[in-house]
């Protein structure tokens, strides 16, 4: 493919520029605004570097050291610990699965309570929303740390942490799904003499279930990633071993564990995207 370039003479160019000034240079207002936005972003960055006391010489030596670690990581090798790591992988999967499911079971009623079209009382749904927001503001690793002090070390603390965080996030998503649904089936149930509970069961539930199931699978994917790190604070799974091996600088085991995580996440993504397509496709046909 050959490209022909258009060559304009100086006079031609000047004439075109004079005819369409707004195309050649944007209006002054836009320019000032763009400049201001960039200046604010850069100024904040400079403030950040100053506030955090950045030492750029450490950056260079650190990168050199990191490159050295990467050469030490090759090839990935579990040593004699493979059975232990497989067990940890099972724990991680268990944490992700039970955490997501537990969170969803608790979030399910809250999704309806926080929806404007189910509970018209503005205070009730405001209160439920704020509770969900508060729980959501705390990261799952903080929950894991709290649960470790409450129920002790081990994967159970991880399950509780993932469940708590998923509960708040899913509760919000569920309530949005409920608010977005079609009113007509609900009116149909009410007009034939159904109670409010029956309106929810037969008018709303069939509409929201496929949406909820697909969100649930999506959260399972994301929780599978998160459950690999709750072990860093002692809540079971691969993270525990990973943090340990990084501390003792066993780089080949570290790279093996990271590889395990990547493969697990890829497999789960593949399965759950298949399932999600199946669920959404079915709901469209029905």
């Amino acid at each position: 493919m050959s490209r022909a370039r258009i060559h304009l003479s100086g006079a031609e160019r000047a004439r075109l520029a004079a005819a369409h000034p707004h195309l050649v240079s944007p209006p002054a207002g836009t320019r000032v605004r763009t400049g201001a936005v960039i200046a604010v972003l850069a100024g904040l960055a400079a403030f950040g570097f100053w506030q955090l006391g950045f030492n750029f010489s450490r950056l260079g030596s650190g990168i050199a050291q990191l490159a050295h670690f990467v050469t030490l990581m090759m090839p990935p090798d579990p040593g004699t610990q493979l059975p232990l790591y497989m067990h940890a992988l099972g724990e991680t999967l268990a944490i992700a699965f039970l955490g997501t499911l537990g969170g969803a079971v608790i979030a399910f009623p809250f999704g309806f309570l926080a929806a404007k079209n189910v509970i018209p009382n503005i205070f009730a749904h405001f209160a439920v929303r704020r509770v969900l927001d508060t729980v959501r503001g705390v990261d799952r690793l903080i929950w894991a740390l709290i649960y470790v002090t409450v129920v002790g070390l081990g994967p159970f603390a991880g399950i509780l942490a993932i469940a708590t965080a998923s509960f708040a996030e899913l509760g919000k998503l569920f309530s949005e799904a409920v608010e977005a649904l079609d009113r007509k089936p609900v009116e149909g149930v009410v007009s034939t003499g159904g109670s409010p509970l029956e309106a929810v069961r037969f008018g709303m539930l069939p509409q929201v279930l496929p949406v909820l199931a697909s969100q649930l699978l999506y959260y399972f994917e994301s929780n599978a990633r998160q459950s690999t790190i709750v072990g860093i604070v002692g809540a079971g799974g691969l993270g525990l071993h990973l943090a340990e091996q990084i501390r003792v600088l066993e780089w080949q085991k570290v790279s093996f564990l990271i590889l395990m995580m990547l493969i697990m996440v890829a497999v789960i993504d593949f399965i759950s995207s298949r399932l999600r397509f199946a669920i959404i496709g079915k709901s469209r046909m029905g």
């Binding site: 990191l66 690793l141 690999t228 790190i229 860093i232 993270g239 990973l242 943090a243 995580m261 996440v265």
Partner: peptide
């Protein structure tokens, strides 16, 4: 895919 915290531990 690699969690932030794992990068943080390495770094």
């Amino acid at each position: 895919t690699v969690p932030e915290l794992v990068f943080a531990l390495l770094f």
